[in-house]
């Protein structure tokens, strides 16, 4: 299984993603172990999955509404947001909505992503990243620090620069 960047380091990944191919049946039997299921499968088999007493993750496609998980945020060890194309930016708002709703677990971005997306992804609340296969993960980590400062508030730093500037009592 490919490694992921998690909390700023390259780490192995124990999760198995289910239903990434076309034509997945949400009601089909699911494998055991640490699995990440599509939203539709979670909605169809929620009770059975919770009864397993295992770590469960859900992955969201770009059009999926984060609101659908609102009642379950405390029960999920992983929410993964899919980026089939890195130019489709809906997942950034999905992350904001999940963190705003109080989700504390691992929030992973996966799909057609490279190091050049890491900085923005980390700002909107993602703390784990599964990049394109050919990306050099060790090198990519540096891009989490592409910028030393940011103007606007976001999830990883809710205070915009103008608030921090005021607190520091300095304009440098």
């Amino acid at each position: 299984m490919p490694d992921v960047i998690r909390n700023g380091a390259v780490t192995p990944d124990a999760w198995t993603f289910v239903g990434l191919g076309e034509g997945f049946d949400a009601a089909a039997p699911l494998p055991t172990g640490a699995i990440v299921v599509p939203l539709a499968a979670w909605q169809a088999q929620r009770e059975a999955l919770l009864a397993r007493n295992e770590s469960i993750g859900v992955w969201l496609a770009p059009a999926d509404d984060a609101e659908a998980l609102r009642g379950d945020l405390g029960r999920l060890a992983l929410i993964a947001v899919q980026f089939p194309k890195f130019t489709d930016g809906r997942g950034y708002s999905t992350a904001v909505l999940l963190r705003r709703a109080g989700y504390q677990g691992e929030l992973r971005a996966f799909g057609d992503l490279g190091r050049d997306q890491l900085f923005y992804l980390s700002r909107v609340g993602f703390d784990a990243f599964a990049l394109r296969e050919r990306e050099d993960l060790a090198g990519a980590i540096a891009s989490l620090r592409d910028f030393h400062e940011t103007y606007q508030g976001s999830i990883n730093q809710p205070a915009p620069l103008f608030r921090r500037r005021e607190t520091a009592g300095t304009t440098r």
């Binding site: 890195f86 489709d88 950034y92 923005y120 606007q152 620069l161 103008f162």
Partner: peptide
């Protein structure tokens, strides 16, 4: 200008 510069959520509208 400052707020919109590198706004992380709205770079891939």
């Amino acid at each position: 200008r400052q707020w919109s510069t590198f706004h992380p959520e709205f770079a891939f509208l």
